[in-house]
């Protein structure tokens, strides 16, 4: 790549202005701008609108939202999810009436909701749909007494300490944060899930929130 371009021969009729005149013109322009900018009217034109007390700041282009469901825009930066060892479809279970807490039973009592053990899968699938090819895969893991090596979809960064229990105790639905998993074939991540601003928005608009104004609530 060239260092620069060769200077083009300037067109005479424009560049005939002398340097002193250029200096005077630019100086006058700057002073003019300063004078204009100091007038009260200019202030209203140029200034960023300051929010009145009690109102959240408005950001140009984003309309204020009621907070739920949260709509903070998210730009995905992760590579696509690797395939699961068994392509487990949540819709198959939920459409038959199995609640989330049946398998993810830790959600009400523990920081972690948990993944069902192979033993728990086999608890039903020893008899239910035992000839289905997907269930056969699960049975193979049980017979080998090996855990199913799932790919973890919902995972906060290591410096966030999150507990399910108080959120369920507050009456939150699983879909609020995890998306409509009950309709998913293979679980996909909920896009907005990983941003702290998304948590903050929801917390601001709840009737009895724990205000996340103190860092030690989640970061320790």
């Amino acid at each position: 790549m060239a260092w620069g371009r060769e200077r083009e021969e300037p067109q005479r009729h424009i560049m005939r202005i002398s340097s002193r005149l250029r200096f005077l013109v630019s100086g006058a322009a700057i002073l003019g701008l300063l004078w204009v900018g100091s007038s009260p009217r200019a202030r209203t034109l140029l200034a960023v609108p300051t929010p009145s007390p009690g109102q959240p700041p408005t950001i140009a282009g984003v309309s204020p939202n009621p907070g739920f469901p949260p709509t903070v825009p998210f730009v995905p930066t992760r590579p696509p999810v690797p395939p699961q060892p068994v392509p487990f479809p949540h819709v198959a279970m939920v459409s038959r009436g199995v609640p989330c807490l049946f398998c993810h039973s830790g959600a009400t009592t523990s920081p972690a909701a948990g993944i069902p053990s192979v033993y728990q899968c086999m608890g039903c699938h020893l008899v239910i749909a035992r000839d289905s090819p997907l269930i056969r895969q699960v049975q193979a893991y049980w017979e080998a007494q090996q855990p199913i090596p799932w790919v973890r979809i919902y995972r906060l960064p290591g410096f966030v300490q999150f507990s399910h229990r108080p959120h369920l105790a507050a009456g939150l639905n699983c879909e609020a944060c995890h998306g409509d998993v009950g309709q998913m074939e293979v679980t996909v991540p909920y896009p907005a899930y990983k941003q702290m601003g998304w948590c903050l928005e929801c917390h601001e608009h709840q009737p009895n929130p724990l205000p996340l104004t103190e860092c030690q609530i989640c970061h320790y």
């Binding site: 992760r78 590579p79 999810v81 690797p82 948990g114 993944i115 069902p116 053990s117 192979v118 033993y119 893991y141 049980w142 007494q145 090996q146 855990p147 199913i148 090596p149 799932w150 790919v151 973890r152 995972r155």
Partner: peptide, 15 residues
């Protein structure tokens, strides 16, 4: 084995 940030999640076989 997985590209970051994906990790494996192993449940119990028999808790």
């Amino acid at each position: 084995e997985f590209p970051r940030p994906w990790v494996q999640l192993e449940p119990y076989v028999r808790p």
